[in-house]
Computed example of a mutant assay.
Amino acid sequence: MPSPLSHGRIFAVVRRIPPGRVATYGQIARRVGRPRAARQIGYALHRCPPGLPWHRVINAQGRISLPADSTAALTQRRRLIEEGVIFVDGRIDLARYGWDDSRAD
């Protein structure tokens, strides 16, 4: 059985996502050594500390996973747009805006 996921490890990875870039929940899960734990990444981000750039984490389809009319989703979209990320039909082009975490260490 895998060890419990440390929120601290998740937050440390999310902190490294640069402005104007996004990462997927699955990408963060792989980065912390738990490739099948994308959903747990989302749970952890619900408890993130102030200042963590949680808004830079999206789903594998390039979309915001929060309910579209929620305050959090509107905040996430606004923050990404302020960083220069462009949405087309509600999606972010991961090839263009995706974080290359292979250079993160």
Score class of each variant (00 low, 15 high):
Glu82Ile: 03
Leu94Ile: 13
Asp100Lys: 13
Thr75Pro: 00
Phe87Thr: 06
Ile58Met: 06
Ala60Met: 03
Arg34Ala: 15
Val14Tyr: 03
Arg77Glu: 13
Ser102His: 13
Ala38Thr: 02
Arg30His: 12
His55Met: 02
Val85Pro: 00
Gln27Gly: 15
Ala60His: 10
Ala37Arg: 14
Met1Pro: 01
Pro50Cys: 11
Gly90Cys: 07
Tyr25Thr: 15
Arg15Cys: 06
Pro18Tyr: 05
Leu66Phe: 09
Ala95His: 06
Ile81Asp: 00
Leu80Trp: 01
Asp100Leu: 07
Arg56Met: 01
Leu52Phe: 06
Ala104Gly: 01
Arg79Asn: 09
Tyr97Arg: 03
Val13Asn: 01
Val14Ile: 12
Leu45Phe: 04
Arg21Ala: 06
Arg63Tyr: 00
Gly62Leu: 04
Gly20Cys: 10
Tyr43Asp: 13
Ser102Met: 02
Ser3Leu: 11
Gly51Cys: 14
Thr75Tyr: 13
Ser65Cys: 03
Pro53Cys: 04
Val85Phe: 02
Gln27Val: 08
Arg56Asn: 00
Ser6Gln: 13
Arg91Gln: 14
Phe11Ser: 08
Gly62Asp: 04
Ser3Trp: 07
Leu52Cys: 08
Ser6Tyr: 11
Pro4Gln: 13
Ile86Met: 05
His7Gln: 15
Ile28Met: 10
Val57Pro: 08
Arg21Trp: 00
Gly62Tyr: 05
Ala72Asn: 04
Arg30Met: 09
Leu5Ser: 14
Arg96Trp: 03
Thr71Tyr: 05
Pro4Ala: 13
Ala38Met: 04
Arg15Pro: 01
His46Ile: 02
Leu80Tyr: 01
Asp100Gly: 10
Pro53Glu: 00
Ala60Ile: 05
Pro53Gly: 02
Arg63His: 04
Pro18Phe: 04
Trp54Ile: 09
Gly84Phe: 06
Arg56Val: 00
Arg34Trp: 13
Asp93Phe: 01
Pro19Leu: 11
Ala29Asn: 12
Gly84Met: 07
Asp69Tyr: 07
Val13Ser: 00
Gly62Val: 02
Leu5Ile: 15
Met1Tyr: 00
Leu5Asn: 13
Arg56Glu: 00
Tyr25Lys: 14
Arg56Gly: 02
Val88Phe: 07
Gln27Asn: 10
Arg34Asp: 14
Arg34Ser: 15
Val14Thr: 06
Arg96Gly: 01
Gly8Lys: 14
Tyr25Leu: 15
Pro35Trp: 12
Trp54Leu: 09
Ser65His: 09
Ala72Val: 12
Val32Lys: 10
Arg31His: 08
Ile81Met: 11
Ile81Thr: 14
Ala95Gly: 06
Gly98Gln: 10
Ile28Leu: 12
Tyr25Val: 05
Gly42Thr: 08
Pro53Ser: 00
Arg9Phe: 11
Thr71Pro: 00
Gly84Tyr: 05
